[in-house]
């Protein structure tokens, strides 16, 4: 039975990972919210899909890398990771290029999920 006290909260990551702090601080927010046992989902749209790209190494640009933190989400029971199919394809990427297992979805399906949410936060 669906618990009425549990809110559906969706985080939408739309920025590439290192040019701005939005993705990193977005991830910090997701990790804290994960402790509150809400119905969390994380969606990667547009340049947000670059956050999941394998093989990132930030050591030479002097900023903290965090792509591996996405691998820890599962341990926080954040299991609903969705990637927008068009965003992935138009960047010449496929699921094999991503650091974690995700569900690749078309925009229509993500749009329907969005409509079910109580809260949506874009990062």
């Amino acid at each position: 039975m669906e618990n009425e006290n549990v809110k559906k909260i969706m985080h939408v990551l739309r920025h590439a990972p290192h040019g701005t702090i939005y993705t990193y601080e977005g991830l910090e927010m997701i990790l804290i919210m994960a402790a509150y046992e809400q119905d969390l989902s994380v969606v990667f749209i547009g340049d947000g899909v670059y956050a999941l790209k394998k093989g990132q190494d930030t050591s030479a640009i002097g900023v903290k890398g965090f792509s591996r933190t996405f691998m820890a989400l599962d341990g926080y029971d954040v299991e609903k990771l969705y990637v927008d199919q068009i965003s992935l394809e138009e960047r010449g990427l496929s699921e094999d290029d991503l650091i974690v297992a995700v569900e690749v979805m078309n925009s229509e399906k993500i749009g329907r999920l969005m409509k079910e949410q109580d809260v949506i936060i874009h990062h």
């Binding site: 809110k7 919210m33 809400q38 809260v119 936060i121």
Partner: peptide, 20 residues
């Protein structure tokens, strides 16, 4: 305050409107 407070705000209100 901490991000836990934001989570509470998201849970206890009818709407969370973001400006950015």
């Amino acid at each position: 305050t901490g991000l836990g407070t934001l989570t509470d705000i998201a849970i206890r209100n009818d709407r969370l409107v973001t400006f950015g």
